[in-house]
Design a protein around this nucleic acid. Structure first.
Lengths: 212, 212
DNA sequence: CAAAATCAATTAAACGTTTGTTTAGTTTTA
DNA sequence: TAAAACTAAACAAACGTTTAATTGATTTTG
């Protein structure tokens, strides 16, 4: 296990600025000069503290992935709701998170697209593996109670969930013009997308995993 | 309708080189110098003939999208197979194309991720809209024969198909290590992926669109 | 018909910009 | 006073694009 690293005030400012600008403009789109300006810090401080832009990205990602991991593990451990309800919460959480942090998730998608084994790809890998394990135990739980059927392909099930949401976000401009929603307020459109994605995925998952 | 443009020998060489290198290294990853070398042509010829790297990409994309459009339209018009079989063929074709031209499809994904209304995004947009129309008529056909049920959300259905395949390709390295397949031959792994994706999507679609 | 002019094709080289990073100092802190 | 924090400036590499000159072929002209 990695020891927790203490960050100074300026380091935190840099990480926050990076998180914001990476999320808004992507990894390549946010230059170190932009980030330094946003954090009100000299450009050289980024290399000084983090070594490189890439390492800075790792720090940002590590911060975010810890939160995600905890949330999923707490959901699985919850004894007050049924396995199917947990799956529904999982879907809603994922849809919400992706919609509200679109640009940041796009960075993750881009990073996974590269075949290179970058440190960031390794971190994403680690997070996904952990979450997949949690979800497998959740499915097993549902199978024990008889709610879920046998022979569920959990990996492809998750691939479909992540893929559907990603694709929806990725092609949202296409979706907008297709439904004459260009004029719609951004917030309203996000609510619409959230609802429609959630409904679609819950229907899909119910058919995939339950006995009728 | 756009008039067909005649390309000289060198222009064709450039387009082919670009198609190859874009597919192997992505848009940013393939420099104009690399492309010029591959086509055995001076760097300046790219700007001279196509105006810019971006415009070159448009030419490459346009060439490819014509083939796709024709294939889908021919499938829909086929009177020898049932609507459900057509959907299955559609799935297989899409899975195959994506698997065999992974890097090129990644370019399309990246291009759609950018919110900017680039000319390439517009071309993708156009192609997708056309294909979506074809598929809607296919679904309507199946509904008329009673094979398919009413109230099918075609847009989200396609989002799930495209998204699932994209996500599988995008995270294939993760998938490999998860199943201890790092050692597997690339061709064999592709066959495996193709089969598993195809099966999963056909199951999914059958449940989504048919009455039982 | 041959010479001259015109135009597209082609080239090597340079341009201008942007990028992440490093250097060589200076200031602050302990 | 020594180490850490911080800075302005320069650096080096890569990129897409443009320039200016040359070649080759085709057309115009005398």
């Amino acid at each position: 296990m990695r020891p927790e690293i203490e960050f100074s005030e300026k380091q935190v400012a840099i990480i926050q600025a990076a998180e914001k600008l990476f999320a808004e403009h992507g990894f390549d789109g946010a230059s170190v000069r932009d980030i330094a300006q946003e954090a009100d810090v000299n450009v050289a401080m980024i290399s000084y503290y983090f070594g490189s832009k890439e390492k800075l990205m790792e720090a940002v990602f590590e911060k975010k992935s810890n939160a995600t991991r905890l949330k999923v593990e707490n959901l699985i451990a919850d004894k007050t709701i049924s396995p199917l309800q947990k799956v529904y919460v999982l879907i809603d959480d994922y849809v919400d998170k992706f919609i509200h942090q679109q640009e940041f998730h796009k960075i993750m998608l881009r990073e996974q697209m590269i075949n290179k084994h970058t440190p960031i790809a390794a971190l994403i890998h680690e997070l996904k593996k952990r979450n997949l394990e949690s979800i497998k135990t959740l499915i097993a739980e549902g199978q024990k109670t008889g709610e879920f059927k046998r022979n569920i392909d959990v990996i492809l099930m998750m691939t479909t969930m992540v893929g559907t949401v990603s694709q929806m976000i990725t092609s949202q401009h296409f979706y907008k013009t297709l439904n004459n929603m260009e004029h719609m307020e951004e917030m309203e459109f996000q609510r619409h997308m959230r609802k429609r994605l959630s409904t679609h995925l819950k229907n899909l998952f119910k058919k995939m995993i339950t006995n009728e």
